[in-house]
Computed example of a mutant assay.
Amino acid sequence: MVEIKLFANYRETAGKDKIEIQINKKTKLRQIMNQIEKQHPEIKQEIYNNQKLKKNVNILINEKTIENQEILDKEIKNTDTIALLPPVSGG
């Protein structure tokens, strides 16, 4: 089972701070994101723009940032932890 941690407005939109999804071996992040959309369709508009992952969505796998261009094809293992973070700004 893979754990997806949700932060800030993603957590508020989904109404929970994490989602757990059962996956098979050699599951791509794209498949996991599709499951998240099915379970929480309200979060889709915050993560996607015209069926493409928004550039400002931060996705970490095991606490390491992966570039958005390659992220959806990344293979995920049952032991991995995924974190979805909205854009962060400071000042």
Results as ranks from 00 to 15, higher is better:
Leu53Gln: 04
Val2Ile: 14
Gly90Phe: 07
Arg11His: 07
Glu63Ala: 03
Ile36Leu: 05
Thr65Arg: 13
Ile32Lys: 01
Gly15Arg: 08
Lys5Trp: 08
Glu37Phe: 12
Pro41Cys: 03
Leu85Gln: 06
Gln35Asn: 15
Tyr48Ala: 02
Tyr48Pro: 02
Lys26Phe: 14
Arg30Met: 12
Val2Gly: 01
Ile32His: 01
Asn34Thr: 14
Ala83Tyr: 08
Gln69Arg: 11
Lys16Ile: 13
Ile32Ser: 04
Thr79Ile: 05
Asn58Gly: 02
Lys18Met: 11
Leu60Thr: 06
Glu67Phe: 10
Lys26Ser: 15
Gln51Trp: 07
Ala14Val: 15
Lys44Thr: 15
Pro86Phe: 05
Lys28Arg: 14
Val2Asp: 02
Asn9Lys: 12
Gly91Cys: 03
Asn78Arg: 08
Lys77Tyr: 13
Thr79Ser: 15
Asn9His: 12
Glu63Ile: 03
Leu29Ile: 10
Thr13Ala: 11
Asn49Gly: 00
Gly90Asp: 09
Ile82Pro: 02
Gly91Val: 05
Asn24Glu: 15
Glu70Thr: 08
Asn56Lys: 08
Lys38Glu: 13
Ile19Ser: 05
Asn62Lys: 08
Ile76Arg: 00
Asn78Lys: 12
Arg11Phe: 04
Leu29Asn: 02
Asn9Arg: 11
Leu85Trp: 08
Tyr10Trp: 08
Val57Lys: 01
Ala8Ser: 13
Gln39Glu: 15
Met33His: 01
Gly15Gln: 09
Asn58Thr: 15
Glu67Met: 03
Gln35Met: 07
Lys52Trp: 00
Leu6Cys: 06
Ala8Asp: 09
Glu67Gln: 10
Glu46Gln: 14
Ile23Gln: 06
Leu29Thr: 10
Ile23Phe: 06
Ile59Leu: 05
Lys16Cys: 15
Leu84Val: 10
Leu72Phe: 04
Leu72Ala: 04
Ile21Lys: 02
Asn34Val: 14
Asp80Ile: 07
Lys18Arg: 14
Asn9Phe: 12
Glu67Arg: 08
Ile21Arg: 03
Pro41Gly: 04
Leu60Met: 12
Glu67Trp: 02
Ile82Val: 13
Gln45Leu: 01
Ala83Leu: 03
Asn9Leu: 12
Val2Glu: 03
Ile47Val: 15
Asn56Ile: 11
Tyr48Leu: 02
Lys74Ser: 11
Glu63Lys: 10
Gly90His: 11
Glu63Leu: 10
Val57Ala: 01
Asn62Asp: 13
Arg30Cys: 11
Thr79Arg: 06
Leu53Trp: 03
Asn24Phe: 03
Gln35Cys: 09
Asn62Ala: 03
Tyr48Glu: 01
Gly90Ser: 11
Ile59Trp: 00
Tyr48Trp: 07
Gln31Gly: 05
Gln51Tyr: 07
Gln35Glu: 15
Thr79Leu: 09
